[in-house]
Design a protein around this nucleic acid. Structure first.
Lengths: 205, 205
DNA sequence: TGTACATCAGTGAACGCGCGTTCACTGATGTAC
DNA sequence: TGTACATCAGTGAACGCGCGTTCACTGATGTAC
């Protein structure tokens, strides 16, 4: 017996459908993308979709699962300082998130879109993010914060993700030039570092 | 001749449809709301909708126009300091925006949803906001900013609107208690005031 | 003021398009003997 | 190795539902004379 040629081909088709979906989402937006847009993009018959996914939402969840599984980017929380009085620690987090967002822009935007329409999706996304949020909140507690650690942590992540979403989608105001990743990361880092009260040049008592 | 009874009744029906639409959007979300949801909510026949609006998007634009016309809230830029080194000036802007968002939450969320699906809507919203953004950027120029004034202004408005959107929709993490408007405004003010480099207790040279 | 006709907001059933989903069929792969 | 049957990914036409949009009709308001 061949080592599951059929299985392999099916797996490949599934992978091609996923890749085609990402391209379609990128071009049309998740909510505007029809099942036939995906199968057409993959060069397959309509019905083929349902051999692999129960629905467009299921496909998006599969893409999300892939993202979390590969999760080499959960290196987010390793090999660096978590002391946010230290500007470098803040910068590390900002850069990690920015890069992650840039790499997975299409899926991140699709998740946001799915969340606005589907309450269940919104809840699940929120639950997925809550641990990270509490993790950040924990590491904020040493600082001279402007408010409740969880609220500040929420602002912390919101400002990064929304800024990334806005600028990487090309929806920001016209600066008259390109916004480099480095400039965005530096500005966000300074803003947040000062905002959470971590400025190192505060006067002593 | 009666003073346009017909006109008056039509205007009232239109107003009732608008009010019903807001209630429907609030309950179902803009994108999930069907024309029949709106007419049913208003207790009218389906066809009645098209006497007043060409489409759901047109209705949303009408709601937006109402909002901008009543624009007593363009008091945003009057009767206060624009010097953002001054914490009170920052607080005034944050509070004004927060209150505005709270009052018009449903429409603001609807606008966001419409923008994710309809590129034209997104562009128009962006254009509507750009003057405000440049206005803020202008007033930031005196400060020791963490980056390009327009980028910082963009972060400034993003952090307020997204925080408002998240918490006023009940999508924030669980604090274990209510988040009061005052707490949110104070925290955002401190965060932003420090973030844009306006901290008054910086050491002199 | 009264009468005859015109206009128009509002009605709700019907139409038709778009699209998600199904399903009978095909041909290649897998299994049994 | 060969033959006969079973399984299953993939096909694409067809089905049917949901919903936006239309339209003939009604009755009240407006206008002309």
């Amino acid at each position: 017996m061949a080592v599951g040629v059929r299985r392999q081909q099916a797996a490949q088709t599934e992978a091609e459908l996923k890749a085609a979906a990402v391209r379609a989402f990128d071009r049309l937006g998740y909510l505007n993308t029809k099942i036939t847009d995906i199968t057409a993009e993959a060069g397959r018959a309509t019905g083929s979709f349902y051999t692999h996914f129960a629905s467009k939402e299921a496909l998006l969840e599969a893409l999300l699962a892939d993202l979390l599984t590969k999760g080499d980017e959960s290196a987010l929380t390793e090999g660096h300082s978590d002391d946010f009085r230290d500007r470098d620690a803040v910068r590390f987090h900002v850069a990690a998130f920015w890069t992650f967002y840039r790499r997975h822009r299409t899926i991140m935007v699709a998740l946001q879109q799915a969340s606005t329409v589907d309450t269940a999706f919104a809840r699940r996304s929120q639950e997925m993010l809550e641990p990270d949020l509490r993790h950040i909140a924990d590491h904020l507690r040493g600082l001279d914060l402007p408010g409740d650690p969880l609220l500040v942590a929420s602002i912390f992540t919101t400002v990064i993700s929304q800024t990334a979403a806005t600028w990487l989608a090309g929806n920001g105001p016209d600066l008259g030039r390109e916004l480099s990743d480095d400039e965005a990361i530096e500005t966000l880092t300074s803003f947040i570092h000062a905002g959470i009260g971590g400025a190192p040049d505060r006067p002593g008592p």
